[in-house]
Simulated assay, not measured.
Amino acid sequence: MKKILDSIVIGGGQAGLAAGFHLRKNGLQFLILEANNQAIGSWPQYYDSLKLFSPSRFSSLPGMKFPGDSNHYPMRDEVILYLQDYTKHFQLPFMTNQQVVSIKKNGEEFTIHTLSGDTFQSSTIINATGSFHSPYKPEIKEQETFRGHVLHSSEYKNPERFMNQRIVVVGSGNSAVQIAIELAEVSTTTLAVRQNVQLIKQKFLGQDLHFWLKVTGLDTFPFWRFGKTIGTASAVIDLAQYKERIAEGRPNQQPMFTSFYKDGVIWPDGKKEPVDTVIFATGYRPSLAYLRDIGALDSERKPLQVAGVSTSVPGLYYVGLEGQRSFASATLRGVGSDARFVVRKLLPYLKT
């Protein structure tokens, strides 16, 4: 007979590791299931030049500081090494190549089935998968007629393959700006936006923006307690003279195009412009189909939850959802606080 664990954590990225830390701290029997071959989440799949918007001192998981200069802004590969070291340091129990495909609930117990054919049982589940594998691309008129290339920012790695092209990057958030700035060095690049990019200074009175967010409490302020829906901030932190580069037209901004045509895009004024590549930096959507059968999702396939606690399935919890409890919830600096909160909610449930 299979052992029934206290908890199964689905996802071995930053959210799953933070959950594992707090489960271990509370002496619970648990296992982290990771779909990939190592517990570092989706970081290896992000673009090569990705840089955190928060310095090292504000980018740590619980129990282990991010190494190096506390004022340094870590790059993607530094985060990967940190997550690898974190897993080894705390000896968190995890199994790789375990993609969850379905979950059943039998009374008070969950049964988790994975693509590899394995089955696991637990009293609770913490879903910590993120949404990188469910990129969102809006439907644009006549897109099927376009003969150029269309991709999502999740598929972008570096500017090498885009040299001397005409490129449109759709979006006005952090990833859109970082990618467009990089591409503008090697290609003619435009940001297609619904609203102009809103830039905020990286430092104020000599301190990083995240210092002020932390000391004022705004970064992790529990807006959910007041029935407020939290989204990601639309402003982009100006890491490297973004304001000056955009003002110089490297890249330029234009209102979102209204349609594709076979050779390019059609702008709101009706002008047709040939384009080689369109990159949608338009975010992600939750990909939680395996939770559907237990009634955990709403009609839009979003989790029914408040502050990471399922409102429809007792014993089900979340860490790493965008805006779950605060602006920082889906970030390295925010998942630790949310994981601690969720595990505290989980403990009384196990005793019932």
Rank of each mutant, 00 (worst) to 15 (best):
M1G: 14
K3D: 10
K3A: 08
L5S: 06
L5I: 03
D6Y: 14
G11K: 10
G13F: 05
G16D: 13
A18D: 10
A18S: 15
G20I: 05
F21H: 15
H22S: 04
G41K: 09
K51C: 15
L52Q: 11
P55E: 04
S56M: 01
L61P: 13
M64L: 15
N71M: 07
M75D: 01
E78V: 05
L83P: 07
Q91F: 00
Q98Y: 01
Q99L: 13
V100I: 11
V101D: 05
K104V: 03
K104T: 14
N106K: 11
G107W: 13
G107R: 13
F110M: 03
F110N: 02
I112Q: 03
I112D: 01
T119V: 13
Q121K: 11
I125P: 09
T129H: 01
S131C: 11
F132K: 02
S134G: 08
P135L: 06
Y136L: 03
K137Q: 14
P138Q: 06
Q143L: 02
K157G: 00
N158R: 13
P159V: 10
I167A: 13
V170C: 13
S172K: 01
A176E: 12
A184N: 12
A184L: 07
V186D: 08
T190H: 13
A192Q: 07
Q195I: 00
Q198D: 14
Q207W: 05
D208K: 04
F211I: 04
W212R: 07
G217N: 04
D219H: 09
F221H: 00
P222Y: 05
R225M: 08
F226K: 07
G227T: 04
I230T: 07
I230L: 06
I230C: 05
G231S: 14
T232V: 08
S234A: 15
V236A: 11
A240K: 14
Y242M: 12
E244Q: 15
E248W: 06
G249I: 06
P255K: 12
T258V: 13
F260S: 12
D263W: 00
G264A: 11
I266C: 10
W267N: 08
K271P: 01
E273I: 11
D276Y: 09
F280W: 12
A281P: 12
T282F: 08
G283A: 15
Y284L: 15
Y284G: 05
P286W: 01
L291T: 09
L297W: 04
D298K: 05
S299W: 00
L304M: 13
V306M: 09
T311D: 02
P314T: 05
L316R: 02
Y317T: 12
G323Y: 05
G323K: 08
Q324H: 07
F327T: 01
A328G: 01
T331M: 04
R333M: 06
G334C: 00
V335E: 05
V335S: 07
A339C: 09
R340K: 14
R340M: 08
F341D: 02
F341G: 03
L346G: 01
P348V: 04
Y349E: 03
L350M: 08
